[in-house]
Design a protein around this nucleic acid. Sequence first.
DNA 1: AATTTATGTCAACATAGCTGACATATTCGA
DNA 2: TCGAATATGTCAGCTATGTTGACATAAATT
Lengths: 177, 177
Amino acid sequence: MSRAGAIKPESDHILDRPMGDTDGIDFEIIELLFFAYRDFISDPDAILDTSGFGRAHHRVVHFVNREPGLTVAALLDTLKITKQSLARVLKQLIDSGYIAQVAGPEDRRQRRLFPTERGRELALALARPQSCRIAHAMEGLGEGGRAAVKAFLSGMINPASRGAADDQDDMMEGHEQ
Amino acid sequence: MSRAGAIKPESDHILDRPMGDTDGIDFEIIELLFFAYRDFISDPDAILDTSGFGRAHHRVVHFVNREPGLTVAALLDTLKITKQSLARVLKQLIDSGYIAQVAGPEDRRQRRLFPTERGRELALALARPQSCRIAHAMEGLGEGGRAAVKAFLSGMINPASRGAADDQDDMMEGHEQ
DNA sequence: AATTTATGTCAACATAGCTGACATATTCGA
DNA sequence: TCGAATATGTCAGCTATGTTGACATAAATT
């Protein structure tokens, strides 16, 4: 038994009872998600530290490798950041030879983004430990369990922000290409 | 040459084939986690924006409410940040009356952290939409599916960093009373 | 009494977001 | 054809949140 017994709240109305699963709130899953995601990104973070890049670079390299030829606008939409924010990391990735730009074949204002071999290797190196972690977390789950995990994660995503993860259902403004 | 010109790939060896589930890497779950977590924290973010706090405050308020009376050292260990980083947000939360400090009953060097009523309300308000999102993502899953989700998330967490989420198995150095 | 521990604090710095303003090339519409 | 809209780039500065390193203080430990 730990805490909270002997301390003396002064006048400030202090609460010493833990916020538990009263109120019908699922604190267990909330915290599991927090810790799971934190450790999930710690793997690539360790690699990135050695190469001088950060998480922002990771995301860019990842999505460019997943959808070569995507436009800057599409990438901004996926990442939900501003172009000024993207510009900083994208420039570094281009200058270091991880990503290349090609003027759009039809609309030459566009800069379509492609990975170089180097960029592909980086993306794979970053994804590998994450995939291992996922495989480990999945082991012991049957087909139904794996399906449940996917359904759960999909259900956590805002319907509007369905990005590259499942890109059927690409509502109205499909003015890309 | 202010901008990178009419770009042409020429010699730079560009890849135009998507990085797919070749290589045995589970990109689908990697991306589902990315989008799920991003939308998961967008709910509290929206609330925090209106109250002048950020994600860092959210985490502090959350864990202090989950374990009233925890020490600064314990909180640092859970959050895995430096004390200087914590100090900034903790000071604001104390000054605004969301969290109170009480000298430890046995070791008076400690500052044990407790939520005020105000702090409890904030923590609940932040947790509520997240819990709703989780409930929505879980609906349609049976008992087995929910268990699979928990097992999966637990399996994603580093064994060493088991924090408040499941605190059985609180290995050796249990000098935290 | 000396040391260690728990915490606080100052200063400087890095990353990665943001807004606002403006430039340039290209496409599109009147 | 010309002017407006679009896709992108860029400059400047701000904020939030993390980092290191150095040092201060009070309380516990030896």
